[in-house]
Amino acid sequence: MSALPPAAAGSAAHTGGYVADPRIRWQEWLPWVLAVAAFFGAPDYLSLGARILIFILFALSLDLILGYAGIITLGHSAFFGVGAYVAGILGAKLGVTDPLVQLAAAAAAAGVLGVVTGAIILRTTGLTLLMLTLAITLVFLEIANKATSITGGADGLAGVVVAPVLGLFRFDLYGKTAYLYSLAVLFVGWWLVRRLIYSPFGASLTGIRENAVRMHAVGAPVYARMVAVYAISATLAGIAGALLTQTHQFVGLNVLGLEPSGELLIMLILGGVGRIYGAFVGPFVYLIAQDYLAKQFPEYWYFGIGLILVLVVLFARGGILGIVDAALARLRRPSA
């Protein structure tokens, strides 16, 4: 399905499989070290930091289905958005304020939606599948837009009440709690995704991506596996959405529809598809650049990301990490 070449074996990419060493390498601790260092070193940027962490989780969920299983979607925002609104409605309308309960509810709602929509759409392929993923997120956008009494409509849903985490850590004005809370959730999500990718299930996903016909021929339940990974991915996306609501105490329409899906795709492609840490690098670079550029130069910003997308597709299909890989490989073998 996907034709982006997965990274070569032995590179920094995490392709999973039966001969891949699943142990965590020292480089893999770098993002966490950096994240903790940023907490102490850049206290003014913690809300941007939390946003980056949340989108890393969101991108990670997309990498699972796109990079590993090869499912192309324009509608991953449906799960993000549903998670965001579930947390928001619980906190603003229903008086359910415990953040972990909100998170669990958002995860469950997005997961169920993932099973249901996955079961429906994953029997189709190509343009039809794209169209269906897009239509599903647009359905939710319409609902969020029109059901104003519950969702706040175009004004968004403000006043989402979120109680202290574990009853101990209040969400403060400086975003310290939000940052650490997001970091902790991301860490758990990362660990699960990583386990999954190195598992036999993960290997069978790459098999499906590479050649679904042959997977059928070796007796694999291809459809069931795809629905399963779609649901897992949806659950993670829903959690990311809920985090966004909780850290902003607000949820608006911009979590649903084509644009957040497209932006997410761009972030992941920019970082590198099907290698876990592309989902880290992409949102990091994208959101920092956006923070600096998008407000001052909105036209150039949009043009720039469009251009980068085109260039990545034409010349650098592994994204930033793919370029790093190639550079490192050249350094190691200067003669080659």
Binding site: M1, I266, L309
Partner: peptide, 13 residues
């Protein structure tokens, strides 16, 4: 298909 999708989304932006 993924490359075509990404490429044309880039053009849209």
């Amino acid at each position: 298909e993924l490359e075509q999708v990404l490429f044309t989304i880039g053009l849209i932006f």
